[in-house]
Computed example of a mutant assay.
Amino acid sequence: MNERTSRLGHRPAAPSTDVHPFLELRVGGLHLTVHHVPYRLLTFAAALIGGGGASWMLR
């Protein structure tokens, strides 16, 4: 088995990719890692913040 084959010996091993997380937050003992952007959550938060900001500005 060489470095280009997997343990089974009949398939080439997948190339190693250096994937970086979207967000990595370390505070004390807390370690939060987000690998993919949560677009639905960001859209929901933007709608809530935009609606709340607009109603607050129009008072």
Rank of each mutant, 00 (worst) to 15 (best):
A14Q: 09
A14H: 08
A14W: 02
P15N: 02
P15S: 01
P15A: 00
S16T: 13
S16P: 00
S16G: 03
S16H: 11
T17Q: 09
T17C: 01
D18S: 12
D18T: 04
D18K: 13
D18E: 14
D18N: 13
D18H: 11
V19I: 05
V19M: 06
V19E: 10
H20N: 04
P21D: 07
P21R: 07
P21H: 06
F22S: 12
F22R: 05
F22Q: 10
F22I: 02
F22H: 12
L23T: 04
L23M: 14
L23E: 01
L23K: 01
L23Y: 05
E24K: 15
L25T: 03
L25R: 01
R26V: 11
R26S: 14
R26I: 09
R26M: 10
R26H: 15
V27R: 07
V27K: 01
G28T: 07
G28Q: 12
G28K: 10
G29V: 05
G29A: 09
G29E: 03
G29L: 06
G29S: 11
G29H: 08
G29Y: 02
L30V: 15
L30C: 04
L30G: 01
L30S: 07
H31V: 07
H31T: 13
H31C: 12
H31P: 00
H31W: 13
L32N: 04
T33G: 08
T33E: 11
T33F: 08
T33P: 01
T33W: 04
T33I: 14
V34F: 03
V34I: 15
V34T: 04
V34Y: 00
H35C: 02
H35R: 15
H35N: 14
H35Y: 13
H35Q: 10
H35I: 02
H36K: 15
H36D: 02
V37I: 15
V37Q: 14
P38Q: 06
P38R: 04
Y39E: 09
Y39D: 07
Y39A: 09
Y39N: 09
R40I: 05
R40H: 08
R40G: 13
R40N: 11
L41N: 10
L41C: 03
L42D: 04
L42Y: 13
T43R: 13
T43C: 02
T43F: 06
F44Y: 12
F44Q: 11
